[in-house]
Design a protein around this nucleic acid. Structure first.
Lengths: 208, 208
DNA sequence: TATCCGAGACGCGGCGTCTCGTATAAACAG
DNA sequence: CTGTTTATACGAGACGCCGCGTCTCGGATA
């Protein structure tokens, strides 16, 4: 997927030279890539620390040295797959269209990468891992959040949307609808859904 | 489900003999109660099959005899805590108020019982356990779903809401908003939130 | 010499299966 | 009506497996 997706789950560890008493970026990347690939191929539950280290050809201690928990590791993997700037499009004078574009891009990423599965897995860990809970609350969805809020705020500032438009309620509704779909029907995250969400988001905020 | 399986799909004429002791309702209840209590006191992750059996004073095999998975067991525990008929109030001519009442009752249950934590835990398991995924999709939220859809449908039928009112979109929005709040800020499931959701749900559907 | 790395041993605990012994309740025989 | 037979539910717990998080090792490198 992101790296050596060749011979299967137990491929030979890629040759890697570490840099001595400095942190090895290669190892760091290999671990994240291994985590991503395992989730893609076998699901979130299969992405144990041991399995990740094994696949990355790394020692468990190396993983624990840089990430405090499985959730923290996978949260970073998610952020790599869903960089916030990738969701933002060219701003137009139609906030509904802008948001639909942003949601559509997010859906594309969820369809082509294990990002969605990582997110739902993280939600699962949140009940027991406070780090995962915090990541969910402020970190992970923040990018998406901003991608949805930005077009709305500028539209309100420019008078395209009425001053009373409830940006917070609109954004919360968008995020909630995407979450819900992700949890209950992750196969239906397509353009049609993006359009449907965008329409409802504008209605909730109070367009016109 | 509630009784011992009968002869099954086979139409084998040979009349079967014999029966043995009956399923113990006490044990069944004790296991569900133990599961509920453990989630309430130590969280979803602590509610392992072994811990549940230990607390219920039951053997592991007894648990596995009646529930195929931890998710199935906890799904039944959830259904006990949130019987659909408890959400429905006296129908009025104001669907928005009816829905606010239903949501408010649900919030009350989530605040007083571990039902909310069971639900989020189930959502977490859904990524790896197909049974949990199925329970989420069709079983669990069905009651809530109906409690929200019913007032809307009757209101449309009675002409209180316009014929074009999108009941499905409205219900999906309500469920999604509750889910989202449950996952990210379970402490804020109060009456204010119920009112806020009810308002948005009516807007999304296309009131007036 | 200090630190990163791979490797893996350790005790712990839950998994799901399996096997005991015991208590029970229907089916059957007398 | 009265045993006897037979199948099952039950508590208890042993089993092999696996992942957890911690802890050493020896080797490599700046």
């Amino acid at each position: 997927m992101t790296e050596t997706a060749d011979t299967g789950p137990e491929a030979a560890p890629p040759p890697r030279r570490f840099t001595g008493p400095k942190r090895s970026a290669d190892v760091h990347d290999a671990i994240l890539a291994a985590a991503t690939d395992i989730v893609a191929e076998q699901g979130y539950a299969a992405a144990s620390i041991e399995a990740i280290a094994r696949r990355a050809g790394a020692g468990k201690q190396t993983v624990y040295r840089w990430w405090p928990s499985r959730a923290a590791l996978l949260a970073e993997a998610y952020r790599r797959l869903v960089p916030p700037e990738r969701l933002l499009g060219v701003p137009s004078d139609d906030p509904a269209a802008d948001i639909e574009v942003a949601i559509g891009r997010l859906m594309r990423i969820y369809n082509r990468t294990p990002a969605g599965r990582i997110l739902t897995g993280l939600a699962a860990s949140a009940s027991s891992d406070p780090a995962a809970a915090e990541a969910l609350r402020s970190g992970i969805m923040f990018g998406d959040d901003r991608a949805f809020a930005l077009p709305l705020r500028t539209a309100v500032a420019d008078g395209v949307l009425p001053p009373g438009f409830d940006v917070d309620a609109a954004v919360e509704t968008a995020v909630a609808l995407i979450w819900h779909r992700l949890l209950t029907a992750p196969d239906s995250l397509d353009g049609t859904f993006a359009r449907s969400v965008a329409r409802r988001v504008m209605t909730v905020g109070g367009k016109r």
